[in-house]
Each structure stands twice: as structure tokens, then as C-alpha cells.
Design a protein around this nucleic acid. Structure first.
Lengths: 159, 159
DNA sequence: GTCTAAATACTCGGATACCCGCTGTCCGAGTGGTCCGGG
DNA sequence: CCCGGACCACTCGGACAGCGGGTATCCGAGTATTTAGAC
């Protein structure tokens, strides 16, 4: 899994902790965690396409959360960055080679058993991530370090 | 996830369906599903290192299952091919940049909340794969197409 | 003083190189089988 | 006929290229602000 996922989650959490609706520029967001500005900007565009962020151009522009943190799951973020493909990709090799040629019994309607089995793992992963909203992670973050919100606000020049 | 995982699972299943302990050469295993021989051989070596297969060199040599199919989980196969790393890699960017520098409150002992949250998804995925053994998939495969075992045996020149 | 309009500075957005890891291929090391010669 | 040794064919194992996607970077399109000028 690409680093962009970690970057996106932290960035979204920072925006959630700021709370207000003032846009924050890509440069500021990247500076918050010392990330390469231009590439991070590219990831933010992916989040905009996925409708997790809204962008406003021009001076005083930047990015805002498109929805409340309790309606954005970690799965949403992962899919926005990685694309909505599955972890395991079935190539249907069961239909190739000698075995594929000799195979005749099963009807072609049923999906490959290997595919089904691997997809069960995929579904478990997705459900676990979908169950966790940004607001949940934000709460945990606050429990670990109650001063984190103040720190973030200060890092972005608020207060 | 790399294709090698799909290849490895099908190959192990084929060996399980053959049942006997006669070694099968890398070339035959690859021909079973029309895979590139040399590269597939490379993957088989990974399975040997993970102690899922045993290899015997020389003429009449090849690969055999190292354990019973009911003691090999899909997770074992995935980790053997992909390495035992986690899906989500935490880079600790929370400690970098402006926010990292200003952050002081939380004790360094607790892991990043984002890391913990993502690892929950990782654990769910691993558990779902660990719960499914090769024998289970083999049974499903046999239900979908009762003639599959015969087909595989024939494809490998048995009977 | 106020309205208008142009210049400006700052932002996002997409097009362009770079690099690491999966993919694919090759050849060498090692082993068991086989064949030939001798007893 | 039986035994021993050398040859050989076949196997795995690791070392060597090729390519695609993530990574990183730059420059152009667009907009709100600012500012200068005219009324």
C-alpha cells in the first residue's frame, strides 16, 4: 500500500481538528508533516475527486473537508488514494494451461473458489476499515495526547 | 498484491489434489496453468523457504507438499510470497514537520493512533485468511466441479 | 470620496521525468539414473 | 551373471535484464485581492 494513504489520513485528521471551514493551502498541509508539497498536492486532488475534500482556487484558497469526520471512513480514504480495486486480483489462471483445457465439468457460472476465498479476506479488511470513521481516530488521538488539537491549531497558525 | 499469490495457491491445490508423495517438477506445475516456467520456479523457491513445500533435486525430482493441506492456511501462502510485512506501513510522519516539532504532550510509548486503526483492518484480513485452510478451498473446488480432481490427475499424467 | 478596471499574487490542476520492485529470463550447481567395462 | 565407476540427463537454485506503477517535480489555468486612475 502506498505512503499516500498515511499522508491522506493524517491530513484529513488535521483538517478535522482545525474544525472551522477556512480553507488550508496545500503548502501548509504538507508542511504540517514535512511532506513533498507537489506530490502531496496530487494526492489531495484524488481526495477531491472522491468527494472527501472540496478545493477553492485563488488567494486565501485551499482545501476543506467535504463532509463531517463521522461520515468519512478509513476505507473511503484508502479507496480514494489506491483506487477501488481489490487486494487480490483473480487472473482466471484456472482456465489456462493443461488443467484449463481438460477442465469440463464445472459450469462456467460459478466464480473460482480461490477467488471467493481470497475475497472473503478482502471483505473482512474492508469492513474493519469501513467501521472506523475519522472521528473515531480523532478521539483516540485526543485520548493519547489531549493537547494534540491545540498543537495542530498552533502549527497551522490559528490562535 | 502480486500475481504470484494466485499462482502459488493454485499450484499448492494441485499438489494437494494429486494426493500422493511423488515429486512434481517445476515445468509440469507451470504447464498446468500456462505460467512462465522460470518465474514460477522462483515463486516455488519462496514456498520452500517458508516450509510449505519440500524440493528434491535431480532426475525424478520436483516439489512436494511439506505439510497436510489442512495445516496450510491461505495466509501462510500469502506471507510466503509477499513477505511477512503488513499491508499498511507506518512512516511515523506524525513526528515530522511542524506538527511533529510542536508536539510534546503525548508520551512516546503509545503507537500512532492511525497506525493502530489501520492495523485493526490488517488483523481482520489476516484472521480471515488464516481461518481458511487449503483443504477447505479444495473441498469447495470439489463441490463446484466434482470431476476437478480427476482432471488435475490426468493433466499431470497420473492414471 | 467612490466606482471601475486592470495588474497582481497566490492557489489548484494536470502534464512531465525518475526510481524501485514485480515480472520475466537465463545459466550454473547438484543429484539420481544409466550404460559400459571388468571380474 | 554381478559389481563398480564414469558419463549423462534432468532437476533445483540463484544471478541477470525489462517494464509498470508509485514517487517526485515543474509549469500553466484560474480567481480573489489589491491598486491605480478617472469621474
Amino acid at each position: 500500500m502506498s505512503k499516500g494513504v498515511e499522508w491522506a489520513i493524517h491530513t484529513l485528521l488535521n483538517l478535522a481538528m482545525l474544525g472551522d471551514d477556512k480553507p488550508v493551502g496545500s503548502a501548509q498541509l504538507a508542511a504540517g508533516h514535512g511532506l513533498p508539497v507537489a506530490y502531496h498536492n496530487k494526492q489531495l486532488q484524488s481526495l477531491v475527486k472522491a468527494e472527501l475534500l472540496t478545493s477553492t482556487p485563488g488567494p486565501r484558497g485551499g482545501f476543506r473537508l467535504a463532509r463531517d469526520p463521522d461520515s468519512i471512513s478509513l476505507l473511503d480514504v484508502v479507496l480514494a488514494i489506491e483506487g477501488n480495486g481489490t487486494l487480490f486480483r483473480c487472473t482466471e489462471i484456472r482456465q489456462c494451461g493443461k488443467i484449463g483445457e481438460l477442465s469440463t465439468g464445472g459450469d462456467g457460472s460459478t466464480a473460482c473458489a480461490v477467488k471467493r476465498a481470497m475475497y472473503r479476506g478482502d471483505v473482512a479488511w474492508r469492513e474493519a476499515l469501513a467501521a472506523q470513521k475519522l472521528s473515531d481516530v480523532q478521539k483516540e488521538l485526543d485520548i493519547d495526547d489531549p493537547s494534540v488539537t491545540t498543537t495542530v491549531r498552533r502549527a497551522f497558525g490559528r490562535d
